[in-house]
Structure formats: structure tokens, C-alpha cells
Design a protein around this nucleic acid. Structure first.
Length: 385
RNA sequence: GGGGAGGUGGCGGAGCGGUCAAUCGCAGCAGACUGUAAAUCUGCCGCCCAUGUGGCUACGGAGGUUCGAACCCUCCCCUCCCCA
């Protein structure tokens, strides 16, 4: 098995580590830029890599619909197809159970989606999601789960969580089958692919605990915490994360799915999380919101119209080295594509620099100091309230 | 000189007797965005009080008809098109 996680150091609950995949190593705590359709939007792989990304995300649902996982398998898998040779993690489509809730019906065997592209109906099951990811050949595949909407009753959260556990078991069994026997219709393009389980349970600690125990009992190469950051208060998210992490194996990576804001990352690392992904740096960049060492900047604001300063004087990214706030605002207001490109490059750099600083702080065992200082700098300006 | 069309909020452009401070688009101002249906979405957008079933001034200008006019009539001013 090619996937291996190594815990290198700890500082409080924060962990410094790394994991090995068939496509290379990833240092943790890690932030994984989201490249849903095989591309981190508004960027080139070259720049994503240069910004410090060691792993990116792809999405089972989107790539299955277009261009199709079999087409990608015929190209040699997702890495070869998109020309990214570093690690890739694929989400299973579980999040689309949540985000496409109006276009989908959940049944015990899986979820039937109505394609957002052409309206055609497709059934995604644990087995199919596993097969698709096997064809894509990502380095880490996620189990197909149900990301429950918030708020939900305890009963609904339990039913959903228990189904996610049953689905996780089916995903694992399918992967074991693909690993041990030749399945003619499934071209496995990355034999060293790892698979992560996902803890669910809404905002209920008892359900989270049950889910964690059941998922760990199935046995995966890593464990994710899913179904958070869907509308619950941040404090509640941190509590659930902290409690859930304690039930996960120490020698395996923990991945908090879909999180989050810069503060979320720092707070979650301090509670023992190793991996993150979030559309926030990329999506918000395209929408004009930029993360800086002095808080968030909405580059659309009129007050930047004649601001000749760099976006973030403490940032070394291409955008900050070459352009003024005034120019970035102009590009955005004019609808130039370069605005999305420059903004995305900056936000990704900010996030990846933050992760590097976090790792350094853990290595030097000064993480709590770093955290306090970071949160203070962040609350100085209207960042997130 | 003759004939025709028209002048509405920053721009374009609806409205053609009351329910119009005036549809809509753009521009502008602000906000949101957390495993991407997102280069998206939401709010505001005459002036003032700035909370509302508030107050004020408004649809080229000046008069007039009417209980009531952006919408009808008269005159004036100004654009654009066609023919000379």
C-alpha cells in the first residue's frame, strides 16, 4: 500500500506530519485547493504548484458527468489527463447530496441526481462512486456519504449518519474487491489509491461519537469530518471537531472537509486536524474578496480606486509584487479575466503561506503563541463576525 | 422651406388621466460566499428625515383643462430623420 501517514511532531493537540502517496508527499497540516472539474478555477497548475499547493481536489460528480470517468481512464487517469503530477484527492459526490438537494432523491442504495448540465438522471451509489474514483485514479478517494443540511433533528441526523456508515462500509468493500480481483468494467488507474472514511452526525456529539467509532471500525487510510460548516455557529463546529478528533486514530490523518476561513484553519489545527479543503480562497477571489495579513479586503470598494499600495505588503505573490490595489480594482470592475486570475493567485498564496506558518509554528512548538497572535490580528479589522 | 419622430431619474429605455418617486437593463454603492450548479447571489440606488402605511421636489420650459397630468390642450425651447 502506497499511502503512509507519518506524525512528525505535536504541539498541544496540533500535529505536524506528512503523508506519502503514489504521486508524492504532502506536508500537514495541509490546505488543498479545490479543483472540482480538474482545474483550480482561474489558475494554471504551474501557479498553484508554485504557490505551495502539494495536493488538489477533484470531484467525482462533476468529472463523471463531464467529461466522464471512462474517458479520463482511457487518458491514463486524472493526473495524466489534467497534467498535474502531484497528489490529488477526489471528493465522492457526497457534498452534492447537500448542495444539489433540490435536484436529488436519496434512497438506501444511493442518490439519484438530476444533472445540473443537461437534466439527465444519474444514480450515484457507494459502489459507483468508488468505481468512478478508481478510474480517475486519485491518490485519496472519499467514501460516498450524505452531507446533512443544517439544521436537522436528532432523529434525522441519526438516520442520515447511520446510512452514511452503511454506505461507507459498501465503499470499503467495493474498493477491497477492486484491489484484490480484476473487475473488467473498472480500469484502476492508480493501484495505490487510499480511501478515507467520513464521520457524520450533524451537530450532535453522541452521533458524532457513534459515527467516528463505526467508521474507524470499518478501517480506512484516513478519516474525514464531514457535514460541518453548513450553517452552524463556528464555536459549535470547533467543539464537534475537537471531540470527534479524539476518537480518531492518532497515526492517521484527519481531514476537516470544506473548511474554511483562515481562523477556522488555525482553530481546527489547534484541535488536531491535519487536512483542509475549501472553495473560499478561490471563489471569494473571483468575487472580489481578498485575504490579507490585515484582514479581508473587498477590492470592489470605491476606497481602493486610487490606492497605489500592494494588496498585502507582507505577501510575496506575483499579484502583490506587481500590482496596486487601484489596478486590481480596475480589473475587477472592468470584468477582466485577469482579475480572477490575479485575485485567485493571491488568495491561494495567502492560504498556503498560512499553512506553512502553521507547520513552522508546530515544529518550533510555538503554535499556541502563533494562534493567539493570528486571532488578534484578524479581529483587529472587520474580518469575520 | 416642406414633411415626420421625439425630449422621462448618471446612461439606455418603459409608462401614455389616478394604484408613478415612476417597470426593466446598464453604470454606481455596499454586503454575502466554508467537501464549487457560483467570473455568482443579495440589498441600496431623486433629495431629506434617514425607523415607517414619513416629508419635499419631480418626467425639456411656461401656461391651461381636470377632483386628479409624466400621460390631454396651447405656446416656447431643443434634438433626430426624410424631402428640397
Amino acid at each position: 500500500m502506497s499511502f503512509r501517514f507519518t506524525l512528525l511532531a505535536t504541539d498541544g493537540a496540533a500535529r505536524l506530519g506528512e503523508f506519502q502517496t503514489p504521486h508524492g508527499r504532502v506536508h500537514t497540516p495541509a490546505f488543498m485547493p479545490v479543483g472540482t472539474q480538474g482545474s483550480v478555477k482561474a489558475t494554471l497548475h504551474r501557479d498553484v504548484e508554485a504557490a505551495g499547493a502539494e495536493i488538489i481536489l477533484g470531484n467525482t460528480y462533476h468529472l463523471f458527468l463531464r467529461p466522464g470517468d471512462e474517458l479520463i481512464a482511457r487518458r491514463g487517469g486524472l493526473h495524466a489527463f489534467i497534467g498535474w503530477q502531484r497528489p490529488i484527492l477526489t471528493d465522492s459526490g457526497g457534498f452534492q447530496v447537500f448542495s444539489l438537494s433540490e435536484r436529488r432523491v436519496i434512497r438506501e442504495d444511493g442518490a439519484e441526481f438530476q444533472s445540473h448540465i443537461d437534466g439527465a438522471r444519474h444514480l450515484l451509489t457507494p459502489e459507483r462512486a468508488t468505481d468512478i474514483q478508481a478510474r480517475l485514479g486519485s491518490d485519496v478517494a472519499m467514501v460516498f456519504d450524505e452531507c446533512l443540511a443544517y439544521p436537522a433533528t436528532h432523529d434525522a441526523a441519526r438516520a442520515s449518519m447511520e446510512r452514511s456508515v452503511r454506505w461507507a462500509r459498501r465503499c470499503r468493500e467495493r474498493l477491497q474487491t477492486l484491489r484484490s480481483t480484476h473487475v473488467p468494467e473498472v480500469t484502476v488507474t492508480n493501484p495505490g489509491q487510499a480511501q478515507f472514511g467520513i464521520v457524520q452526525g450533524g451537530v450532535f456529539q453522541d452521533l458524532r461519537s457513534e459515527s467516528a467509532d463505526a467508521t474507524v471500525a470499518i478501517g480506512f487510510e484516513g478519516y474525514a469530518i464531514g457535514g460541518l460548516a453548513v450553517g452552524e455557529p463556528a464555536g459549535q463546529m470547533y467543539e464537534i471537531t475537537a471531540a470527534t478528533v479524539q476518537r480518531l486514530p492518532e497515526n492517521q490523518p484527519r481531514y476537516l472537509m470544506g473548511v474554511g476561513t483562515p481562523e477556522d484553519l488555525v482553530e481546527s489545527v489547534s484541535r488536531g486536524v491535519d487536512m483542509f479543503d475549501c472553495v473560499m480562497p478561490t471563489r471569494n477571489a473571483r468575487n472580489g474578496q481578498l485575504f490579507t495579513s490585515e484582514g479581508r479586503v473587498n477590492i470592489k470598494n470605491a476606497r481602493y480606486a486610487e490606492d497605489d499600495r500592494p494588496l498585502d505588503p507582507r505577501c510575496g505573490c506575483y499579484t502583490c509584487r506587481h500590482h496596486s490595489r487601484a489596478y486590481l480594482r480596475h480589473l475587477f470592475m472592468a470584468g477582466e479575466m485577469s482579475a480572477a486570475a490575479l485575485n485567485t493567485l493571491h488568495n491561494l498564496t495567502f492560504y498556503l503561506d498560512l499553512m506553512r506558518s502553521i507547520r513552522d509554528a508546530i515544529a518550533f512548538r510555538t503554535f499556541d503563541n502563533f494562534r493567539q497572535e493570528f486571532l488578534r490580528s484578524v479581529t483587529r479589522l472587520p474580518l469575520d463576525s
